[in-house]
Amino acid sequence: MLARVVYSLIIINKAGGLVFNRDFNSALNKVSVNDLLVLAGTFHGVHAITKSLTPSSLGIPSKDRTGIEVLESSQFRLTCFQTFTGTKFLLFTEPNQPNVDVIIRKVYELYADYVMKNPFYQLEMPIRCEAFERHLMSYIRAK
């Protein structure tokens, strides 16, 4: 069996701020928190641009126009899932990892359960919920 094929997870709030990041593979190079913040902000901007790039001639209503969803390179694949409220989940995986949409939906479910139902979590603030991390790790490990 190869090394874990889900590399890392980043959660960006609706203002483009980084609220959560976790590496699932210890072989990865460490990225400084500053770089992560820049990455989150940049992706947020790029996402907004790609959303407005949809040609209007296609006649897609503006609420159905999504921004960037997948970004692929030879080494990794970045999948973005945006919730209705604008929170973005970015999952870095191996390029051939199947069922990324299932994983990302499960992560969203865990977020909805263990972050949003936690009375000590303040909206749009960095996520420090021990139960969320515990369930996230056990889910990704079981993959």
């Binding site: 359960d113 009375p119 000590f120 919920c129 139960a131 969320f132």
Partner: peptide, 14 residues
């Protein structure tokens, strides 16, 4: 079930 108590309030049990 869904509650994570922050470290500075570790005594608390809801």
């Amino acid at each position: 079930q869904y509650i994570s108590v922050p470290k500075e309030m570790s005594q608390l049990n809801c």
